[in-house]
Nucleic acid binder design. Structure first.
Lengths: 179, 179, 179, 179
DNA sequence: GATGAATGAGGGTTCATTCAT
DNA sequence: AATGAATGAACCCTCATTCAT
């Protein structure tokens, strides 16, 4: 791929991220093109379908998240890394409708999610090994809470404070030694 | 309002509930009209805007939920009513896209939510008085968890089992005496 | 259907006939709408797909042709009716690209053509009974010649004179007593 | 012109022939480029317009046909060469949408057809001299029948058998001694 | 000369909303 | 009040053509 094409592809992805983050996946491809500063045809050359664009965005997102998890696995505190990642993802979701739409809705891309799922699985294992998460908590529930909270974080009412307090309740629920 | 107009209004709301529940708010007004057995013009006479129709649906939903809360306040076990209601709402959301869309997205109708908020507030008070919910849990967090979990419940992966286990974590987080 | 809708439907069909006759089936639906004096949405309300519009045009055409054949069967000279119809169809095709496109190309509407085929079959029977068409000529060949000549008649070079002389050759080929 | 340019030109023409033969002139230039193994820009450098490419194809076709006629004139049986050529062209058309589209539709290239016309004229003269075609048959009619039958041969229903029987009728019409 | 990315007009289709019947 | 036809902006996508690399 030529240098300018590479540049445009990146620009389009960035524009799409912004636009879809603000207005959700229902925003028009035309708007993405405008924000990227290219003609509509250029968007469709790089992503032949609107859905392809959304999927690419999703892959990008999952890649970043997985990288973050990996970094936590290597350098973070095994006991708290799960909570750290959880909080970070939710914080991020609060300003990005795309994160939410993609994390939750599209079934066809769930293969992509598998990657993320496995990464989070490691964090969960660590936390359970460290004894800060009950051993009967399954990865399924953690993923479900992750997705649900990300969705929720989008709403207007969720400021940093509410987010923190809500997560505190969930983290308490995950901690061992109760019941 | 004439008797038949009254009847039509009810029919349209019922149809809208069904249609939007199945396909989300993106479904066409025409489809609602068809399912209601009226012409498209009739829908717009009753609800001048598609958004008006969605808002009306929301009011209806909140009214029902509030009624359910009230009934729990009167006849339910004060200690567990909050959890009962929470679980029921989430279960309901899992098959009704409308619940989710409305509960989460539309900001302009949040006045309507006030009613529900107050009702849930009573349940929370009761649960805290009964000592099954920590006293430092605020209504804000409960509402946030309610909304988030409702959204999450929509996803394909959420079967009854996962729903139950996920809620169990949240309920544990709400319970007192831990940490 | 309301009176105005009926009127518009007719107008659209007439406009489509004209437009497609002049430019072939590749002409835009928008142009049809403009010529009909309606908005684009109206065209699609009556014919949900461009192909539906073309098919409707085809049905209309076949209906007319079949009616003409029937009238010939009832009142025409059995010996010459086939030739009369043949000549008339080709003459008509010479100014109507639609006739040609539809008669020849679209496979999905061939059920419609069945009607025409049967009608022409009667004319052929009559002509053979009258002894002016060889008895070993099959309906298949007649239909093939009909279609081919209609297509050919579209070309710029075909004036009335050329048409007549070309048909004379074909008619001679169909006549009995030679070879 | 450089050697590689020459080679590319030939490749593009070959690819265009294949592609347009299969899908008709509506196929995209991009597809031609792909099949030719060159970039789209190269196609447009050699043929500044899609129509130029089609015209070139036409020239090529006419050249081939004229060569075939010439070979028939030199070595064929004067009495039957016209029929041989006629049958061969129609057979070829049955698998090549291009032949048909070009032979029939484009007016601007009719100068090219002049060449073919003259060649066919020779065959006709021969056949009339041999007494197997009526002397009052004009070249115009033969060309018209040639074009019409080529178009017709494209349709799905035309198998080898139908083609043969249909041509038999036309050939009979051309033969002398009848009427 | 070749490459292939960018352009942007144009096409089919949908749908909220308006308005004549 | 109800009907349902008409409107037209907006959307996704295609493709001939141009032009920077």
């Amino acid at each position: 791929m030529r240098a300018d094409a590479q540049r445009n592809r990146a620009r389009i992805l960035a524009a799409a991220d912004e636009v879809f983050a603000a207005k959700g996946a229902a925003a028009s491809t035309e708007e993405v093109a405008a924000k990227a500063g290219v003609a509509i045809g250029t968007v469709f050359r790089h992503f032949p379908t609107k859905n392809d664009l959304l999927t690419a965005l999703m892959k990008e997102l999952v890649r970043e998240l997985a990288a973050e998890v990996e970094s936590l696995v290597r350098q973070g505190d095994p006991a708290t890394s799960l909570f750290t990642f959880f909080a970070h993802l939710v914080e991020r979701a609060s300003s990005r409708k795309t994160v939410v739409d993609l994390l939750g809705v599209d079934i066809r891309v769930s293969e992509q999610l598998q990657l993320l799922r496995e990464a989070v699985g490691i964090l969960l294992d660590q936390a359970q090994a460290a004894g800060v998460v009950r051993s009967n908590v399954l990865l399924d529930e953690v993923m479900a809470l992750l997705a649900a909270t990300s969705q929720g974080a989008l709403h207007s009412g969720w400021d940093a404070d509410l987010r923190e307090r809500t997560l505190a309740i969930i983290f308490t629920g995950l901690r061992s030694a109760q019941l």
